[in-house]
Nucleic acid binder design. Structure first.
Lengths: 251, 251
DNA sequence: GCGATCAGCGGCACG
DNA sequence: CGTGCCGTTGATCGC
């Protein structure tokens, strides 16, 4: 247990030297901004990062229960009963958090030196690049149209032409596809159809798809390919691509 | 600075007693699971919660750079050069994180007692309830259809009938609406239209809407209402609702 | 700066 | 459990 006075000093020291500040104590939290919230008293971990990030964590769950993004301004004060830690930010909207500690178990701060950024493998973008190189896996004669894809409003994952000269929009999902994936594909196809004035095929590729989504997909005249891929450490690789038989759903 | 041996003991102690464990040190991080990633050496904060949650935080940004959800299993060991902290989970997919500490600056663990849950005000659901009570703000004669809304596949925010007996789907957004909001509304309207066999009106309500989205909305024959609301502490209140004039966009 | 979209999205509620 | 969808979504990239 630490006196609120000591805690105050410790937090101030950390903030002044732009260090990572950790506070553990019994507190209640109020938030007001895009929404508003109140959290009654309990033990929580408060993390304040040098960039202004402000995180209140409970003992469970991944997500912070209350938070403030980078660029927020932290301040500390002592009132008659509590240690008050506030975080305020004005942009994009005015938001305010107040953490009111009645007890503080621990305070410390640390300088952090870290210039590294994450190298991630298996993103949708990376998978799309892989798939671009192997469009024949979907269908022989499919050839990619470079950079056309990025010229749309909401850019299409892959744009290609088939052997008959039809435009083909390919929507790639790295995880199971749902209704939203189909509506997204539909929007792209309709935009392009209107713009080009001719029929455009739509193909959805994903590791899996929900029953409703597949039904809607077929209803709209689109095609589905089940995508098998593997993500090893330095890259991601497409293992297979299999057209789902439409007949199963006809009724 | 703490010896890796001490760090090992400290972490084990915390894990065994189901406390919140904090580790600060210089480490590299590898992840493999739904995707894969590598993060080169730097100073990071590791948070391990009693429920298995595992968070690696850099000095910037709100989101953890690597993480593992509740239910994950943490283990610690010492190899020839480093302190290895691993987190593993099998469901829903096998995932693995390895944090390799070459230096540890701080380790501690804390029991946390907290049974409180967040009271949040200003959620979309709460706004929808408010709006249900004041549908006349949109248009006189609009009456809500109870519980119809939840009987759809992707449930509609509000379903109502107008004075002419038309079905009206109302999609409510608590923040600025984009193309996705319009496609969502469109899907609901089309589903319902097909099911009921008669024309269904679609109305989008949000604090704001992007130009492209409004264009698409009007193209599809839907209506837009600008929604002004205020979120005070114990509730959220709708301040106003104003139909946007379509004429501005005709060309 | 806004706009659009992805995310190892997470979390929740419902069937 | 999967499905669907909101989120104080956050983060990124393009314009």
């Amino acid at each position: 247990m630490i006196s609120l006075n000591e805690a105050l000093a410790g937090i101030k020291r950390g903030l002044d030297s732009s260090e990572l500040v950790l506070v553990l104590g019994k507190c209640l939290v109020k938030y007001s901004g895009r929404a508003a919230s109140k959290l009654s008293e309990g033990d929580r971990l408060l993390v304040i990062k040098p960039d202004g990030t402000f995180l209140v964590h409970q003992k469970s769950k991944m997500a912070a229960i209350n938070y403030q993004g980078p660029g927020s301004k932290t301040s500390v004060e002592l009132n008659d009963c509590c240690l008050l830690v506030k975080s305020e930010r004005l942009k994009p909207v005015a938001e305010h958090i107040e953490v009111s500690f009645s007890k503080v178990f621990f305070v410390d701060s640390f300088p952090m030196s870290d210039d590294e950024s994450l190298k991630l493998f298996g993103s949708e973008k990376q998978l799309a690049q892989e798939l671009m190189k192997d469009l024949h896996l979907i269908e022989p004669g499919l050839t990619p149209l470079k950079n056309e894809s990025s010229s749309l409003k909401g850019s299409v994952d892959i744009l290609a032409t088939d052997s008959a000269g039809n435009l083909v929009v390919i929507e790639l999902k790295r995880r199971n596809a749902g209704l939203d994936s189909v509506t997204q594909l539909k929007r792209y196809v309709e935009e392009l159809q209107k713009r080009k004035g001719k029929r455009v095929r739509g193909i959805l590729c994903s590791p899996n798809i929900t029953e409703n989504a597949l039904k809607m997909l077929y209803n709209d005249g689109f095609e589905y390919f089940k995508l098998d891929y593997e993500v090893s450490n330095p890259s991601s690789r497409i293992k297979g691509l299999q057209r789902k038989q439409k007949e199963l759903l006809d009724f």
